[in-house]
């Protein structure tokens, strides 16, 4: 890879610019769908961008007594980790920018960093609401992260590879095997809701209880980047789920392949929007209970199924 194409990859596609544009578009689709499901008008298409630009122009406040470097770096860490993880996920084809054996583990690891950044940001804010939010965020990690790992492990077991590109290539070669992983697909979607802190798992930033949780002391540019990181995380999470569980249209021309990929991501975002209109927010204890007593067993059941299927074929 030449320096030129590497710079292009990092800054334009599939890196920063593409991810930011897609992230803001994804936020719009999510908000519009959410509104229409609730029988409302919803925002115009430029609303996420307008919100982002407005926040950029607002005053930055760092609370007294906060750990300034951590407080400042948390949003950057979150965004950087998300952007970095897109290079290991195949978009519209069976190879990512930097595929290697084990990139699935790396991506899962990178996707935990935003949550850790939320925790650190909240923890250093010195606000009691932020502290409660930070603790809830980190409690929630233990509830949804294991089912997500297990759910993604199952297709990997069947494909016999630890690379996302490898998994995508395997399922592209065995078109009907994706049906085996449907349970895991559901588990991954539920875990994604938890990762993105959306209803019913928005306990860490529950507006009516702890105002904005970890983000309560954040303002201006830093809040804008936190929100951008969440938008991008939604896209990366959806891309990961799409690459592993929805292996269709991978052998097409690049342009067509990207279109199919965008459609898949939007479908997943649509399902997430529908899910978040459906429920009341769960209490943190109910959330943990639900994840361990319902979601995790289903994920383990998926592993069992895949082990059996692997023996059969």
């Amino acid at each position: 890879m030449t320096v030129g194409s590497a710079v292009l990859n990092i800054l334009v596609f599939p890196g920063f610019l593409f991810l930011v544009a897609f992230g803001l578009a994804g936020e719009f689709v999510d908000r519009k769908l959410y509104a229409r499901l609730q029988n409302r008008q919803g925002p115009p298409w430029y609303q996420p961008l307008a919100d982002f630009l407005k926040l950029l122009g607002k005053e930055n406040v760092i609370p007294e007594g906060a750990d300034r470097p951590t407080f400042r770096l948390a949003p950057v860490f979150a965004l950087a980790a998300v952007v970095a993880s897109i290079f290991y996920i195949p978009l519209g084809s069976t190879t990512s920018v930097l595929p290697f054996e084990g990139d699935l583990i790396v991506v899962l690891y990178l996707l935990v960093i935003p949550t850790v950044a939320f925790f650190l940001g909240g923890w250093t804010s010195r606000s009691v609401f932020a502290t409660i939010g930070a603790f809830r965020a980190i409690t929630q990690v233990f509830a949804y992260e294991i089912p997500l790992f297990v759910a993604l492990l199952a297709p990997a077991l069947l494909a016999n590879t630890w690379s996302i590109s490898g998994i995508a290539a395997y399922y592209a070669g065995h078109p009907w095997l994706w049906l085996v992983n449907l349970l895991g697909f559901g588990v991954a979607l539920v875990s994604l809701l938890g990762k993105l802190e959306k209803v019913p798992f928005d306990t860490p930033e529950a507006e009516t209880e702890i105002v904005a949780g970890s983000f309560i002391e954040y303002s201006g540019r830093r809040l804008a980047f936190f929100r951008l990181a969440i938008d991008c995380e939604a896209i990366v999470g959806a891309s990961l789920v799409a690459a592993v569980f929805l292996p269709f249209g991978l052998g097409l021309t690049p342009v067509l392949g990207i279109l199919v990929y965008v459609a898949k991501v939007l479908l997943i975002l649509g399902i997430l929007a529908l899910l978040r209109t459906l429920f009341a927010r769960l209490r943190i204890d109910q959330m943990v209970h639900f994840c361990w007593s319902v979601v995790a067993p289903i994920a383990f059941l998926q592993i069992l199924i895949n082990l059996v299927v692997r023996e059969l074929i």
Binding site: A35, R36, L37, N39, R40, Q41, L278
Partner: peptide, 14 residues
């Protein structure tokens, strides 16, 4: 779910 999906294709109330 049913009433939500119906809203999706209805004219918004706002």
């Amino acid at each position: 779910v049913p009433s939500l999906l119906r809203s999706l294709f209805r004219h918004p109330a706002t």
